[in-house]
Every structure is written in C-alpha cells, then in structure tokens.
Amino acid sequence: MKIDLSGKTALVTGSTAGIGHAIARGLAAAGADVVINGRTKAKVDAAVVSIVRAVANAKVRGVAADVSTAAGCEALIAALPQADILINNAGIFEPKPFADIPDEDWSRFFETNVMSGVRLSRAYLPDMLKRNWGRIVFISSESALNIPTEMIHYGTTKTAQLAVSRGLAEMTRGTAVTVNSVLPGPTMSEGVEVFVKDLAKANGLSVEEAASNFVKTFRPTSLLQRFASVEEVANMVVYVASKEASATNGAALRVEGGIVQTIA
C-alpha cells in the first residue's frame, strides 16, 4: 500500500516532539503539507527544521500557539483557516494521587486534553463536511479504557476524547469525512526515555532492563512486553489519515501492545 497525501493540508497539535512529531514526519513523508504546532516559536522552528532534514521534499511549516487555551486555538485557526487533516495530539499527563489533585489540575487537564480538540474540530469539521473530505484523529490512550489509579484525571480526559470522537463521527454519516481515535500504550517518547534512563541509573540496570521491568510491573497484561516506539504509533495515525482508510470511521484503534484484555 502506498499512502499518498499530496495536496492535503495536515495540522498536528503538540508536534514539536514525541508522538506528535513522529506523526508530522510520517504525514510529510506521505506528501501532505504539514503544519507543526507547539507552544513556543523556538521549539516549533526546530521541529520544522528537523522534518525538513529528515524527509526529502517535505512541505512543512509551523504555527506557535498554546492550544490549551481558547485564545491559543483562535490564533492557530486564524493562521490556518482550513485543514484537510486534523490530528488532535496535544496533551499532558502527570502521576498524582487522587486526593492530591486540586480542582485547578482537573480544569487544566480538561482544557488541554479535551477542549483543544473540541475547539479545533468545531472550527475545521464544518468545512470538511462541506467539501466532502476530511480526517480528524484524536490521540487518546489505553488509559481511556484502563483508568490508571495513579492519574485518574488523565484517564478521565482520555475517555472523554473517545466520547467526543465518536459523537463527531456520527455527524459524518454518508460523507467522505471520518473521525477516529488512536489509543497508544506506553511509548518511548523523549520525556519517557529520560524517565526510564533515570530509573535505570537509580536501580543499576540497563535502559532496556528498566523499560522491560516498568512495563511488566505497571502494565503486566502487555503482550508486547516493551514500550512502543513513536514511529509505531505514527504509522497507525498516518494510515487513519489516508484515503485508503475511507471505511474506518467512529473507531477507537488500539496501538497499546495488547494491554487491554478485551476482544473488541
């Protein structure tokens, strides 16, 4: 299968690093005109340069805007009034005991993880429906199904993303627009890699041993028995954003290594 997204404009929020950056790189390699997004111009510019160097003939530009706020979403939409592909990837997480999570954290997580996607989808979906083609993908998590007791507020926002995604998909009935969610599991992004290296150093283990022990301890049902790479997650997202994925709509697609023990 050759995925060709030439002529399509793709916006990936939170794409200066990690899964978002891998998605942006994958979409650029498939020929899409990619718009990188992050909070600061410096990080956005660096991410653009990184993709230009990695992907021959990449068409990529950046827009610095904080999509965790309504004002930031408005600024991004003003800079990019139309998009064919919207990847709602921006998100935050933080382990914290439930009793220690204040209202402010609940609000901050909801604004960042849920409302960013709501606001941007509200802006871009109507035009996708009018033009009869578009792709919206929410980057959720296996934590949407297995709510982690160490960060219930995070898991709650990931479940909310599934509800928003499915609800929006219902609005696309009979069109060539699709809305789906992708659910990664533990993934070796830059931030996680630093955490695992610190864990390895503290316990006198190799990075590989520390990563394996972490998965076996905290995600014991994993069939993969390791962290996924950001590219493995991005591969699923690029497919879902493609013309070839036209019959995939309203789905919650798991890239979590078999952690979730259900048959559907």
Rank of each mutant, 00 (worst) to 15 (best):
L27E: 02
L27H: 00
P220D: 05
R119G: 02
E209T: 14
L223G: 07
R25A: 11
V182T: 08
N146K: 14
L76A: 08
T156C: 11
A65T: 07
R53C: 09
E208H: 04
G26I: 03
V233K: 00
I77Q: 08
T149D: 12
A210M: 13
K8Y: 10
I23C: 00
L27C: 03
S6T: 15
A71R: 15
V207G: 10
R61I: 08
L168P: 02
V114L: 01
T13H: 01
N213H: 08
A210I: 08
K59R: 14
L86I: 01
C73P: 00
I87M: 03
A169H: 06
V233I: 11
A32F: 02
C73T: 07
V137E: 04
K2N: 12
A144H: 01
H21E: 09
V63K: 09
K59D: 10
S242V: 03
T175F: 03
A70G: 08
G191L: 12
P95N: 14
E142L: 15
L205S: 07
T40H: 15
A99N: 11
V260I: 03
Q82F: 11
V237D: 05
E111M: 06
K41Q: 15
A29N: 12
E142S: 11
A90V: 07
K158S: 05
S165K: 01
L224H: 06
L145G: 08
A99C: 13
I136C: 04
G14N: 12
L5A: 02
M188T: 01
E209I: 14
N146T: 11
P95Y: 13
T159V: 14
E193G: 13
R166N: 06
A252R: 04
E142K: 11
A29F: 11
D45M: 10
R131E: 13
A163K: 09
F214Q: 12
S222T: 06
A251P: 00
A264K: 10
T175V: 05
L125K: 04
D198M: 14
F138Q: 01
M1K: 10
P95W: 13
S143P: 09
P97I: 15
A47V: 07
T16M: 05
M128K: 06
A78P: 13
S246G: 11
R39E: 05
M236G: 07
K96L: 15
A202F: 07
N235D: 13
N213V: 06
M171T: 15
M171K: 12
A24W: 10
S206P: 09
K158R: 10
A54D: 05
I23D: 01
R39P: 02
A169Y: 04
T157K: 08
L223Y: 05
V164C: 05
V238Q: 13
L168Q: 01
A123I: 06
V240P: 05
T157H: 06
G7Q: 04
